[in-house]
């Protein structure tokens, strides 16, 4: 009976986390298209529901009722597995994101490593989809995407080391609490900028959306996908984007902490602050999509390996020496 109650309680908690994440993914797609449209002086989706809020729901319905086409020359098992892997990996990472001092599904002590590991696994969904389609464009897109994600993960890893030097713990809640006096965005501002750009590349967002560059590769690794499988790729991609925003908010913007510890701000629960920070970062993502032209592939690789990696490595040395010199190293 004990086991059963534990299982029910955990399932309830997981559902309570996953359903809002999925709904917010749908909303965020609408927000993305709206911001993109307003920058270009268009209206964007504004017909379905109030302000077009239900547009994503309508799209999802359309995808559900469409036929799923599985190419006859594809590797069927892996072809079907690929969107499932993408979607699952995008969702399981949310288990460690802290929404408050106690509001976290799994408060594990290597939380940030878990996040990093899951986001580095995300490349498999894309490679599997690209390879199993057995077609030129998906394969090219998958190869591009794999190279891109592996390169930008390196600099994200080094940036995480920067933050960890200031915290002295791998637990995400400890990272948030360490920013009680000063958000890390202020002392580590260059790292925040590099993290933001690397997150764009890691999630294949414009200006780094080379894996699905429609002018060159039709739709990259998703070319052969249709119906619900395409929708799963799409949901997984946006869930990953939200996750990257959440990671940025936790690492640099103080997670669930309120900006000022004074009366009217402390009334608002931490989860709301975290959501506001995620939304702010996502707004920046959407703006970048609208205003920056696409990078060329060699420029992308040059930026990742020759600029971001050395710069963030030097910054690790700087941070470590600063903390060591002023005796600020966190010791527990």
């Amino acid at each position: 009976m004990d086991y059963l109650s534990i299982i029910f309680e955990q399932t309830y908690k997981i559902l309570f986390l996953l359903v809002p994440v999925l709904v917010s993914v749908a909303m965020i797609v609408w927000l993305d298209r709206r911001v993109w449209a307003f920058v270009q002086k268009r209206q964007g989706p504004n017909v379905v529901g109030p302000f077009g809020l239900l547009q994503s729901l309508a799209d999802a319905l359309k995808y559900i009722f469409k036929e799923m086409i599985i190419p006859s020359s594809s590797n069927k098992v892996i072809f079907i597995l690929a969107p499932i892997v993408t979607m699952t990996l995008a969702l399981i990472a949310w288990a460690v994101i802290p929404f408050g001092a106690t509001q976290v599904l799994a408060d594990i002590n290597v939380g940030i490593l878990y996040l990093f590991a899951v986001s580095s696994l995300g490349v498999y969904g894309i490679i599997m989809g690209g390879w199993a389609s057995n077609s030129k464009y998906p394969f090219l897109g998958a190869i591009r995407s794999a190279a891109q994600m592996v390169s930008y993960e390196v600099s994200i890893g080094v940036i995480i080391i920067n933050v960890l030097l200031c915290v002295g713990s791998l637990n995400l809640n400890d990272i948030v609490i360490a920013q009680k006096n000063l958000w890390f965005v202020i002392p580590l501002f260059p790292m925040f900028v590099i993290f933001f750009i690397s997150a764009l590349a890691e999630t294949n967002r414009p200006p780094f959306d080379l894996p699905e560059a429609e002018a060159e590769l039709v739709a990259g690794y998703q070319t052969e996908y249709s119906g619900m499988m395409y929708a799963m790729f799409w949901l997984g991609e946006y869930a990953n984007i939200l996750l990257m925003c959440a990671m940025g908010a936790v690492l640099f913007l103080g997670g669930w902490l309120s900006p000022l510890e004074i009366y009217p701000f402390t009334l608002i629960p931490g989860a709301i602050w975290l959501i506001l920070k995620i939304l702010f970062l996502f707004f920046l993502f959407a703006l970048v999509k609208a205003i920056v032209p696409r990078y060329r592939y060699d420029q992308l690789m040059r930026l990742g390996w020759k600029i971001f990696l050395p710069f963030s490595l030097v910054w690790v040395v700087l941070t470590a020496s600063f903390l060591f010199y002023f005796n600020l190293l966190p010791v527990n």
């Binding site: 002590n109 290597v110 490593l113 878990y114 990093f116 590991a117 592996v150 993960e153 890893g157």
Partner: peptide
């Protein structure tokens, strides 16, 4: 050995 497990995921599986 949660650290080893995560490093295994990052290094071997991820790269």
């Amino acid at each position: 050995a949660e650290f080893l497990g995560m490093i295994m995921l990052i290094v071997y599986v991820g790269a």
